[in-house]
Design a protein around this nucleic acid. Structure first.
Lengths: 191, 191
DNA sequence: CTACTTTGTGATTCATCACTTACCTCCAAG
DNA sequence: CTTGGAGGTAAGTGATGAATCACAAAGTAG
């Protein structure tokens, strides 16, 4: 038997969720394998099931964590601000994720794409609804502005999925597609 | 042997692509099965491979068809128009898809989500780039406006994925989430 | 009629994967 | 010191799914 490093359940839970973010974020719900998640988390595959029950429950837990972390990020970014300024601050923070947290943007796309599963869809709607409600509440602007705000967010998600972020292009050693650069430039708030 | 209804290769190709749109559009690249696609297309599973080579080639063919149909839709909508008017017309046509062609919006999301595969990613970028270039060329507006235009499109894709279109809500017999209604309202061009 | 091409299938292979069962090993409380 | 629970695994199981192979039947040209 391999040497066992005993850790607390909590530590394992977050380790598995961290690994799941990578695996599901890149390959999606159906494409990601629990075996790979277990390996990346440093535990055996059966233990993943002991901790989370089913693959779906694990994915759902990941979705919930992602949305709640994003909501916290919104709150931090908007702290002390109201109205349009709050919205701009959140938008800037979201754009930063393109550079720092691209995987989370991709994972969100995977969550939307996994919405053929009713339970996952319910979790996604709940999370998204909380983000929208928060943005509405903290900014107080009219629907059209809220829509553009979230629309830009979704465009950033898509750009991250296509691997067109500055980080990706630099890593690939490839010159970014010019149209993609213009799209990204156009997302910047008018300053 | 079951009675064989011989059809032309072309007919089978489009039948398979139609079935693939449904299967991949709802379950995604990894989640969709070639067996199910074959069944929906009314042929045997091996023949799918005879026609398309591999599952990936089939998915790629679907992506290409989707993007080129969308480009045609852009061209039709913008016919005879220039500048902002052209963009508004395309936007209106795109919004209509929420009601008439929701599956195609979902399929686009699945295409973005399948971008961990380099070949699929290349096809997606090519298709997306053509849409952006066309919109830029026909409208001639500045980057910020192009970005908002595509951003709104992506938001509609996400809303379709989450099953929050008017059609879905009516079909489910459920009242739509209020925040989702506001988001959709906010997408309408200011008229 | 014969030979060849096109359209098609049944049966199978081989890998992967979600999930289970049965077990092991620490460690702390009585 | 022993017992019981919490943290963990090795070894399977059954299903599914992509891809292959060998073969069949329907047209078609000579």
């Amino acid at each position: 038997m391999v040497v066992v490093e005993r850790k607390s359940k909590e530590e394992r839970l977050t380790a598995v969720l961290d690994a799941a973010l990578v695996e599901f974020g890149t390959k999606g719900y159906h494409g990601g394998s629990t075996e790979e998640i277990a390996r990346q988390a440093g535990i055996s595959q059966p233990y993943v099931f002991r901790l989370f029950g089913t693959k779906r429950d694990l994915f759902e837990a990941l979705v919930n964590r992602c949305f709640s972390e994003t909501l916290e990020m919104f709150e931090r970014a908007a702290d002390g601000l109201r109205g349009r300024e709050a919205l701009d601050a959140i938008g800037a923070a979201y754009m930063e994720q393109l550079l720092t947290d691209e995987l989370r943007l991709r994972a969100q796309m995977q969550a939307y794409s996994a919405c053929d599963d009713p339970e996952i869809c319910a979790a996604v709607r709940r999370g998204y609804g909380e983000l929208v409600s928060f943005a509405e509440r903290v900014s107080g602007v009219e629907p059209a502005e809220i829509s553009s705000f979230f629309a830009k967010g979704m465009l950033l998600n898509v750009i991250a999925s296509m691997g067109l972020t500055p980080t990706d292009m630099a890593a690939g050693g490839v010159a970014a597609e010019p149209w993609a650069i213009r799209l990204l430039e156009g997302c910047r708030p008018p300053s």
